[in-house]
Each structure stands twice: as C-alpha cells, then as structure tokens.
Design a protein around this nucleic acid. Structure first.
Length: 586
RNA sequence: GCCCCCGUAGCUCAGGGGAUAGAGCACCGGCCUCCGGAGCCGGGUGCGUAGGUUCGAAUCCUACCGGGGGCGCCA
C-alpha cells in the first residue's frame, strides 16, 4: 500500500513537533503544505513561525530544532531550513520510485480507504415530476454523482438519493386541472411528458389567476395526502411518465446507482415531525400556519423568519419533508448528509439544519452540508435559455454536445483520410457528455458559469477531450509495447527509475492523487480533482516530449512503460470518479 | 432594507494564512529524419476600494463599491 505524501508527512512532522518541543505543544494548523515554488522543495513546514510566539524563541532556531528531530530519512532528502523558519522537504527519489512501483497494476492506485468510514447520504438531482429535466438539474446531478463516487472510493458507505419532487401544491393544481380538461380520466399510452408540461403551465396560470381554482387545487393536495383514490391514481400516472423520461437522461449521463426516494415517501412521517416539534415547544401558529422561528433569520421587515412546517390549509410543505428525510436518514445511521442543490436554497437548508439541531434530530457528530452551486448562464450573461426564451432541456443539451463531438470526429477522420471508426457513436457520446460534465465540474461550484459548447469541446486546455486524448495517446503507446492487456506488466518484475526531471515530476503528480481526493470530499469540490488531472496530463506531455519510451534501452523502457501505465490508470480512475468515460481510441 | 455567494491577467478561471499569485484562451516567436502536434519550449500583464488582525493576507475580520441569488405558507 502506498502512502499519500501529505498524509504521511503530516503524521511524521506532527511526531517531530512533539519530539522537538514536547507533546503538550499544540501543533499548528498548517503542519505541512505543498510549496508554491519547486525551488522550495515539494512540501514545506511553516510551523516554526507560528510556534515562535508561544515558545518565545526565534523561528529559525525552532526550525533547526524541528528539522533535527524529524524522522523522514526514508521519505525525504535531508530537510532544508530556510529563513525565516521554513523546513523544506523534498521527496526522495527512491521513495517516489517505490511508490510508483506499488501503484502498477493496482486498481486503487495505492490509495487506501479512510480510517473511519461512515455512512453518507448524498442527495442530488431531484427533478420534478411534470417537468422535464432541464439545465438546472445538470449541476446537481453531476456534482452529486462525482462526490458520491469519490466518497465511495475512499471507503465510505454511500447512499445516493434522488429526492424526486413528486409531492406538494403543484399536484393539487395539476390534478384539479386534469379533472377539468380530461373529465373522463387520464389519457392513454400516447401521452408524452411534453403534454404534462403543457398541463403544468396551464394549471399554473390558472392557479395564479383564479381564486376558486386555487382553493380547489389546495383541496386536491389535501385529498392526495389523505390517499383519496382518484387523486392518487392521477398522481401515480404522472410520476411514472415523468420518471421514464428522466431515465433516458440518466442513461445518457451514465448515472447509475441513484435510488429514487421521492418526497412522497416521507408523507407518513410528516404529521409526526410536526407533532414532535410541537411537543418540544418549538411551534408557533402564525396566520394559521405552524411555524418554527429560528434565531438569526429575518425577513424584509427585519422580523423573525419562520420555517413553515404546516400550512394554514393543513398541507405540509418541503420544509416538513426535508426535516422528515433528515431525521430518518440520521436514524438509519447516516453520519454525513450531503445536499447538492442550487445556492438559492442556502437559507432554506440553513434553517432546516438549525431546526433539526434544536429538535435533537441532528446530533453534533452528524455533519449536514448544503453543497450549493451557482447558475448556468447563457453566453449573454443571463440564465441559460433557448432562443425562444424557454429553459433548456437537459436531454437536448446533451444531444447537442454529442452531435458536435461526432461531427468533429467525422471531420477529423476525413482530414486524415481514415474511415469513420465503427464505434464512433460510443466515442462521440463519451466525448460530448464528458465535455459537458467536465466543463461543469472543473468550475468552482459556488460561482455562476457561462455555458459554452465551444469552450467545453475545445481540444486544447483544461477540457475533457484534452484529457481523454491524453489517455488514448498513452494507451496507444502501451498497445505498441504489447502492454495493453490485463496485468501485462505483472509478468515481469517492475522497476522504476526516475532519472530525468520530467519523470520525477510526473511521479510527484501520480502519488498525490490520494491527497487530492481527500480534499475533494473535505471541501465538496470536484474541481480539485479536475485541476489535478489536468496537471497530471501536462506533466505527462512534458515527460513524453523529453523521454522516449519505446525507443529507450530495455531497462529504461520498462520503467517508462510503468510510468505510462500508472498515468493511464490514474487518468481513467480520476475521470471515472468525475463520471467521465475514457475511450481507448479517439 | 436584511441575509448568502462572487469580484484575481484583454477573456474564461485556479489558488489549502506561508516565500517571487498560477493555468488555459487570445497574441508573438521557436520545435515535426521523433512512440498520436489535441503536443513541447520561450515571450507579460493582475488580487474591486479603504481599514484591521497576524511574524506573514488573494485567503481571516469590518466598512464601502460592483455583479448574482434569496428573503411567509412553490420546491
């Protein structure tokens, strides 16, 4: 098993601090950090500077003492103490070589599972019944999916939940409207989701314009919630139709282990949730609605803001559902709750978490995180819309990306005078969908970003196609060498020799993947991983440029082939964790 | 009005309290007798403003400016 450098160095340097200054000295927060400049080594320990005050000694002296106390000879070259008080560390060539050797043929790339795996619920995607998935669901789905992948890879027990919007006021108005326009009952097999959407739009318009209709819609919500058969049947029809269409999108995206547990499934728990809040004395009835007022939240007028848990008409809303879901997830052993929704819901989740904590449903050892993300913007700067002003459907958006990728592949084959590859549709899908995913995941999720096919699908720079190409290129080398089979290298003893600086640079990137994955789940930022993979691909290209592989003499060739293998495996694994496929040939 | 997020190079964006703030795109020059040139090598400009905390701030705090989002029975 290989060790991620940061994990290893932090443990060793922590021990060094205790040895040099006593076990009672509080170790500083940043024990070891990567350097910003290779001239300062690979990693550095700035601890002496922060300890200078408490220990009342000059930082340089402390750094010297720390360096002398470090037990790192197997991992690093002798530490270098630099003013004002840095202890700079450089990984030993022999250590890097042994790490790369350990990664060859290892499906996990030498990355061990976390010491304390926990049960994690990742809640993402969450489309609404009666509406097609649109671009707004893109970010939730792919960010949530990749976070689930990384958490799972690190050894956690991950449950991916699709909190389907299959409940609420919208169904009251839909049912009421459908009863008006289809008095004979719901339509047959031919009904498409487009029709559901048209019904939704009309129903919505009526709801906002017609008070009588609004009252009836609200009544039908209550009917649905009490299990009235006609309302229930109409509802189920809509859910099935909608999910069948959503499944096409999930198939296209390669989203697999997402389990649908819609809002409706929490319905039996809602009354109890409110009853418990009432029993805890948290509920105040205001304008007929049952509210929980939470400190620190105010409305426009500066008055306390309520979390409404039961509306004046008796119906429950999404706050109640979210509380019920949270409570049941914790009861079932989850120790980490991850909600991937747009940033506009930040206040809602902050309030839900606060209420849950006060009700005792969210104990301190359970982490609840709202993983918020910004909007997807059009090239003009506003929300992404079609030319006619509609929201962009996710299915169409992905189809367009695949079509563009395919057109490129066809054009390139023609340029080279080659036939169109037999698997072009598969490759085009991997490239097109991968480009969309990577274009999103490589952004800081908190900011809005501008959606651009041209930028995502460009073949240069930090894009999925660039990384997929880098992978295909490496695989091509391995094929030439007859190393593309399973365990091709395992048959002979692997030795790695990092004689050239480009080889060592590549190796430093390769061994850092485990550290990067830990950061991804600490910060809930897949962009850390995309940045790492891009740097890895760049390091590979530099290596490739300066270090011939196939033409090298036998021992060097074996070593470089091992580097190629581990790089390819790292790219495949890393992109896989982002939910992106890597074709063997492009 | 209050709350949240964002503001870094001409453009799109990275950046973990640590040293001289990095990529890509675009622009200008090199490199194909060479494993896939979607590549490599070189070229320069910047942390919204003003304070504060700190040995050290793009990063933390405060105020302001600019952009986006949210703010009582939609989710």
């Amino acid at each position: 098993m290989a060790d991620s450098p940061l994990r290893l160095l932090r443990a060793r340097v922590g021990a060094g601090v205790a040895a040099a200054f006593g076990a009672d000295v509080e170790p500083p927060e940043s024990l070891v950090v990567p350097t910003s400049d290779p001239r300062h080594g690979d990693y550095t320990c700035p601890a002496a500077m922060s300890l200078a005050r408490t220990l009342r000694r000059p930082p340089h002296e402390l750094a010297e003492r720390l360096a002398a106390a470090l037990d790192l000879a197997d991992v690093c070259d002798p530490p270098e103490v630099v003013r004002p008080g840095f202890v700079n560390l450089r990984l030993r060539r022999s250590w890097l070589e042994s790490q790369v050797v350990a990664m060859v043929g290892d499906d996990r790339l030498g990355i061990g599972p976390v010491a304390e795996p926990v049960r994690v619920v990742v809640d993402y995607s969450g489309p609404n019944v009666a509406k097609q998935m649109h671009v707004g669901h893109l970010r939730s789905t792919i960010i949530g999916d990749s976070l689930g992948n990384v958490l799972e890879f690190l050894g956690h027990e991950v449950e991916r939940v699709n909190h389907l919007g299959d409940w609420g006021t919208q169904f009251g108005m839909l049912i009421a409207h459908v009863e008006d326009v289809h008095p004979g009952g719901l339509g047959g097999a031919g009904t498409e989701v487009e029709d559901l959407e048209a019904l939704y739009r009309t129903a919505n318009a009526r709801f906002s314009e017609d008070p009588a209709f609004r009252d009836r819609a609200r009544q039908r919500v209550v009917d649905l919630q009490s299990g009235e058969p006609a309302a229930r049947a109409a509802w189920q029809w809509m859910v099935d139709l909608s999910m069948a269409r959503n499944q096409e999108v999930y198939d296209l995206l390669g989203v697999r282990s997402l389990v649908t547990r819609g809002e409706s499934s929490y319905q039996p728990l809602l009354a109890d949730v409110v009853a418990e809040l009432e029993a805890a004395g948290l509920v105040v009835v205001d304008d007929g609605a049952k509210c929980v007022f939470v400190e620190g939240f105010t409305n426009k007028a500066g008055e306390p803001l309520p979390l409404i848990v039961q509306k004046a008409d008796g119906a429950y809303n999404y706050a109640t559902t979210d509380l019920a879901a949270l409570r049941s997830r914790v009861e079932q052993g989850a120790r980490r709750l991850v909600y991937v929704t747009d940033a506009g819901q930040a206040q809602h989740f902050a309030m839900v978490f606060a209420v849950a904590a006060r009700a005792g449903w969210l104990p301190p050892d359970v982490e609840a995180a709202h993983v918020a993300f910004g909007l997807v913007l059009g090239e003009g700067g506003g929300r992404l819309r079609t030319r006619s002003g509609d929201t962009v459907r996710l299915h169409g958006l992905l189809d367009e990306a695949v079509a563009r990728a395919r057109a490129f592949l066809v054009a390139r084959a023609a340029e080279r005078g080659e036939p169109v590859p037999a698997d072009i549709d598969e490759v085009a899908r991997a490239v097109g969908v991968g480009a969309v995913k990577y274009g999103d995941l490589s952004q800081n999720r908190q900011s809005n970003y501008v959606f651009s096919y041209d930028r995502m699908l460009t073949l240069k720079g930090n894009t999925a196609p660039y990384l997929q190409y880098a992978y295909a290129r490496i695989r091509s080398i391995l094929r030439e060498a007859g190393r593309d089979g399973d365990g091709g290298t395992a048959a002979e003893a692997v030795t790695v020799s990092l004689g050239e600086p480009q080889e060592a640079d590549l190796a430093r990137r390769l061994v850092a993947t485990g550290d990067v994955l830990e950061r991804v789940v600490d910060d809930y930022l897949p962009s850390h991983l995309s940045a790492h993979l891009y740097e890895l691909a760049q390091a590979f290209h530099q290596f490739y440029e300066h270090c011939p592989v196939l033409r090298a003499e036998a021992a060097v060739r074996r070593s470089r082939l091992a580097l190629c293998e581990v790089t390819a495996a790292s790219l495949r694994r890393g992109l896989g964790l982002l939910g992106i496929e890597v074709p063997e040939r492009i």
